[in-house]
Design a protein around this nucleic acid. Structure first.
Lengths: 250, 250
DNA sequence: TCACTTAATGTAGGACTTACAATAAGCATC
DNA sequence: GATGCTTATTGTAAGTCCTACATTAAGTGA
C-alpha cells in the first residue's frame, strides 16, 4: 500500500483541506486498526457475553473482548472473523458491525482505532473453547459485567442498547435459541433481553398471530408437568411476509 | 505517537494473536483514518443531503460527502466537526457516528478507513455556504442522489435506513424543522422521511396526545386559507416523560 | 386417584386506530 | 359584504387490538 504514495513532503493528494497546510501525506498514515467482537449467547436464563482473559500487557489479566489488530491489506469483516476464530475457536459466526472507537489515548502503543462487531449465537450450536488457545475463554452474565480491558465496557454497553432496540423490530432473538424451542423459552429470552415481564397468555397469542413459527409436532420431554409444544422459527415465512410489508414488533 | 513504539522487528506488544507470527508491530501502523459527514436538511418538502464538489483527484468533479483525513493526534468527533466546518462553514452541528467503511481498495492512495457521521439540521438555523471555500456546496434531494465519490452512496443509504428506524422511535424529526412549525409541516416531514401518507386528523391527534408540543399561541401568516397554529417542540416535557417510561412511537 | 406444575385457551372490558364527515377561519373574487 | 376556495381543526362511529385474569388441559410424582 505504502508504495502507492509519493514520499514528497508536500504531497497533497487525498485530503481536501489539510492540503492548504501542506502537511506531508505520510503523516496521516500512522493509525492502526483493530476489531473487537461482542458475542452474545443465551443460557441458564440469562444473556451472556463471551470474553477472554488477556495474556499480554496492557491490561494483562483483565477480561476483554476477543479482538486484535487488522492487517493493512485485510478487509475488516474478514479480520473480525479471523480474530474471533483464532481467539475463541468460533467459526462461521455472522458478525454485524457496530460503532468505532478512536479516543486518542485508548491504547498505549499508539493510535489504534477499533471497530466493534457483534453477533447473537445459539450456544448449543457453536462451540467456543474448542480451540487450544482458548483455555481462557469464558461467558459472563451481561448483568454482572466485570471491568473489561480498554474501553470494552463502553463497546458492550452500546451494543446492548442497539440490540434492545433491534430485537423489538426484527426477529433476531430467535438466533439465540436452539432450533426447536417452547413459547415459554422464547418469552424468557425476550424478558431477559428487554428486562421486563410479559403476560404469558398475551405473549403467546401475539407471537402465534404473526405466523412466524412452525409447529414441529414434537413435545418437550422430561419435565414434571404438562409438556409444551416445540416450535421452530420459519425463516421462509418471515421473508415472504416481510416482502408483503409485514413488520415485526414486540 | 510513533515514538512510543519500539522499532524492533519482533516487537509483540499489543496484538494478541499476530504475536505468534512475530510480525513487527510497525507493519500494523499503516492506516489512515478519515471522516465523512452525512448532513440532512429538510426544505422544499423534501429531505436533502449536503454535498461538495471535489476539487482534487481521485473522483475530481464528482459530488462527495464533506470529509477529510483525521490527524494522528486528533479525536474522531472533533475531526468530524472540524472538517465539516472547514468544508461547508457549518458549526456546532451535533454529529452522531454511524458506521465505518474500510474496503482495502476504497482509496487509491493507501488504506484509508472512513468513519461516517450524520446529523439532521434545521436549514433556516444553520447557514452552509457561509465559508469562502464553500462555493461548491450544494443540497441534493435524497430521492435523486447522483453518483457520489468513493463509497459515499453506500454511506448515505445506510444512514438513511438507520434514520428511518430511529425517527419512528425518537422525536428526532423535530430537529429538521424551524423552531415554530405547524402540524401540517410536521406531517409532511414525516411523510417525506418515511415515504408514506398519514391521515391528517389522526396524525394530529396522535402527536397532540403525546403532550410534546407547546402551543405558541401564534398563527401561521400569509397563507390564503385558514392559518394553522404554530407549535414548538417541548424538550423539557419530553425528557420528563421519558424518565417516567414514556416511549415515542410513530 | 390426587395434588402439583406449567401449558394452552377463552373472554370481557377498555384502549387505541381508522376512515371519513362536519365545521371553522382565513384569503380572493365578484 | 356574500360567495367560494383552501386548508385547519374537531367529531364520531366502527372496528381492531391490548390487557388482565379466569378456566381448562396434560404431564409427573406420591
Amino acid at each position: 500500500m505504502h508504495n502507492k504514495r509519493s514520499s514528497s513532503t508536500e504531497d497533497i493528494i487525498g485530503h481536501q483541506f489539510g492540503a492548504f497546510y501542506k502537511i506531508p501525506i505520510d503523516k496521516f498514515f500512522q493509525f492502526a486498526l483493530s476489531v473487537d467482537c461482542v458475542i452474545l449467547g443465551y443460557h441458564e436464563n440469562g444473556l451472556k457475553l463471551l470474553v477472554i482473559e488477556r495474556g499480554t500487557e496492557p491490561h494483562k489479566g483483565k477480561k476483554a473482548l476477543p479482538g486484535d489488530l487488522v492487517y493493512p491489506t485485510e478487509d475488516m469483516e474478514l479480520a473480525a472473523s479471523r480474530v474471533l476464530k483464532d481467539l475463541t475457536g468460533l467459526e462461521e459466526v455472522f458478525l454485524t458491525q457496530s460503532k468505532s472507537y478512536g479516543q486518542v489515548d485508548r491504547h498505549p502503543i499508539g493510535r489504534v482505532v477499533t471497530v466493534g462487531y457483534y453477533s447473537l449465537i445459539n450456544v448449543d450450536q457453536y462451540q467456543p473453547l474448542a480451540n487450544s488457545w482458548a483455555a481462557n475463554v469464558v461467558w459472563v452474565d451481561v448483568n454482572e459485567l466485570p471491568e473489561l480491558a480498554f474501553d470494552h465496557n463502553k463497546i458492550v454497553n452500546e451494543v446492548l442498547s442497539t440490540l434492545r432496540e433491534r430485537v423489538r423490530l426484527q426477529p433476531i432473538g430467535f438466533e439465540l435459541l436452539p432450533r426447536k424451542f417452547t413459547l415459554g423459552q422464547l418469552q424468557e429470552l425476550y424478558e431477559a433481553i428487554l428486562n421486563t415481564k410479559f403476560d404469558k397468555a398475551n405473549f403467546r397469542k401475539k407471537i402465534l398471530s404473526m405466523n412466524l413459527l412452525k409447529d414441529t409436532k414434537e413435545l418437550q420431554k422430561e419435565v414434571s408437568h404438562r409438556p409444551a409444544k416445540l416450535f421452530s422459527f420459519d425463516k421462509k415465512a418471515y421473508e415472504s411476509l416481510r416482502k408483503k410489508g409485514f413488520s415485526f414488533e414486540m
